[in-house]
Design a protein around this nucleic acid. Structure first.
Lengths: 256, 256
DNA sequence: CGTGCACTTGACAAAAATCAAATTTTGTGG
DNA sequence: CCACAAAATTTGATTTTTGTCAAGTGCACG
């Protein structure tokens, strides 16, 4: 068995999520590592490391599903191509996320690296074997899937908004919470993707995204340090715009 | 141990999904029962039956999560209430679906019965104990969660559409596929929910939903037998509108 | 057979898509 | 390090679509 140092990131696949079972040793809204050192090592035994350049296609919707991926570094987008060539992004995947969802043995989405990506590749057959032998590991996968399901529902909630400015505010809030949930410094929000990619995620046209950003800036709610770094200047107005029930996370808050 | 007759629906909780592992004994696009008779019996041991009248609230977002539900009969909506009182529906749940997603020990959505509902109630503590002891059962739960995740992504895809008519077409297609996936007669599509509920699911105003239906009718694509029963009259135009990659399900189709 | 609620329809205003042009950034080769 | 080309982003003008508000219509249920 591996003798790994008990550092924060050690060796092997890792998945992180907000615990749905109200784990006592993690504060609300915080993501924690679901896998034990041991589980990570067991997964590492069947995993291999793969790297993708920025913009590289990882797989295409409809391809036979023979692997699931676990991100170590970088950002991935899962998307669908409409017959007219337009893209719709169903999710962004970050480190400690897993992706490679399949239906009838085929990938449901296409995926591309938004930034340079390092990931573990887990062959499904071996993963499956591993899973059915390992109830604890399975349980953690369930927790992660619940997390991804909640994320997908949040995305849908964002998309259901009718006006552009709140959509963008919610998008920024989404990125911010991702950073804070990982205890990363969050004085400003980092946008790893370009405007066009954002527009495909929030379901608006490219000019509409640009205008929404401009509006938020003009109203003194946000401020761009540069194109990929925003700072929330007026927190109150921001939260109000992104009137996302999720944001009511103050201690003693009533409902979500 | 229970001696149950091997009828299609026997006793105990049941979950159904389209298999992601490309199960050889189920044709593509078809939902199958994931649980064995035995697993259903084991779950039945910790489950109790509950009934809700049409319109009844099952739980509210933010309530402590102490139970997960499994629908036997009826339709449930999972929704969020915006501060301004407007509702957003994140999912419809049908027989053999499970619901009761939680985050930090609280329900993420509120839920209401759209029709009269019969369901199994599974206390989370007992379910959790059961799960970690039962790798096979866990595996099936994973499969179901993957299914719900795909559904959520599809919903988001629908919401990302910019025009109303395709949205409604996709919505109808969604209901239709649900029927066919369960091998129910599908000469016409049954809409168990009212227009207002539809509008909250597709993210459009009530008049917009009405207009979209009228447009589809005027263009000879659909036909209402009555307010809750639609028939696809022009299948080709319909599929084209609902240019949802999922619909390319013809044998030999290329990608999804 | 009437009353109420669900749904449809109409008129108008607001927002966003679209098309196109201007501007800024980024990357590359000298 | 600079100049230039290509790409990304912003901005503007116009059109389409949808939301909104309000008034009808019809179905369902008592």
């Amino acid at each position: 068995m591996h003798m790994v140092p008990s550092a924060t990131r050690s060796y092997g696949p890792a998945i992180r999520a907000i615990d749905q079972w109200c784990n006592p040793n993690s504060s609300p809204g915080l993501m924690r590592q679901l896998l034990t050192e041991d589980e990570r090592a067991r997964l590492a035994a069947i995993a291999s490391i793969v790297r993708f350049k920025k913009g590289a296609e990882i797989y295409r919707a409809g391809d036979r599903t023979d692997a699931v991926f676990n991100i170590v570094r970088g950002v991935v987008k899962a998307y669908k191509m409409a017959p007219d060539g337009s893209e719709y992004i169903s999710a962004f995947l970050f480190p400690d996320d897993i992706f490679g969802l399949s239906e009838d043995g085929q990938y449901v989405n296409s995926t591309k690296a938004v930034t340079p990506v390092t990931a573990y590749l887990l062959p499904v057959s071996q993963l499956r074997t591993r899973l059915v032998k390992d109830a604890d590991l399975e349980f953690h996968v369930i927790a992660k899937l619940c997390h991804e399901l909640r994320q997908a529902q949040r995305h849908a909630f964002l998309l259901a908004q009718r006006r552009g400015v709140p959509k963008i505010a919610m998008f920024l809030q989404f990125l911010e919470q991702l950073q804070t949930a990982k205890k990363e410094p969050a004085s400003d929000i980092y946008l790893p993707m370009d405007r066009s990619t954002i527009s495909e995620y929030v379901g608006m046209s490219l000019p509409a995204v640009s205008r929404a950003f401009r509006r938020l800036t003009a109203d003194g709610i946000i401020e761009f340090r540069n194109r990929k770094h925003v700072k929330i200047v007026n927190r109150l107005a921001f939260e109000k715009l992104a009137e996302d029930p999720y944001s009511l996370r103050a201690p003693g808050s009533v409902s979500r």
